[in-house]
């Protein structure tokens, strides 16, 4: 895999970061032989790595992932229970 993208996404809390991880990790990359995604959480930061054989597939996979990441963040903002 020649191309790699690393994302570090800070959240307000470690709990929010792990909610995002648990939500997004369920949907697998459709073609793992040409594009792989690994995810982890460190404290309140979500760590994501994409690896792909082509730049184009990396772009498509990461763009869709960013859309879903934004959606889960907006959902956390709008529907968290008051502490």
């Amino acid at each position: 895999m020649d191309y790699r993208l690393r994302l570090r996404v800070p959240f307000a809390s470690a709990q929010d970061a792990s909610i995002a991880l648990n939500t997004l990790v369920v949907d697998k990359e459709p073609k793992p032989d040409i594009c792989r995604r690994t995810m982890d959480v460190q404290d309140n930061t979500l760590l994501v790595t994409f690896e792909a054989t082509e730049l184009r597939t990396l772009r498509v996979a990461s763009a869709w992932f960013m859309d879903m990441l934004q959606l889960t963040c907006e959902t956390i903002d709008a529907f968290s229970l008051p502490a």
């Binding site: 909610i19 995002a20 648990n22 939500t23 997004l24 369920v26 949907d27 869709w64 879903m68 959606l71 889960t72 959902t75 956390i76 529907f79 968290s80 229970l81």
Partner: peptide, 17 residues
């Protein structure tokens, strides 16, 4: 793609609540 959108929101609220 549309199914995934709904599942992402459902998973997030399920964990929040």
């Amino acid at each position: 793609a549309p199914l995934t959108v709904m599942a992402v929101v459902a998973r997030t609220v399920a964990q929040l609540w």
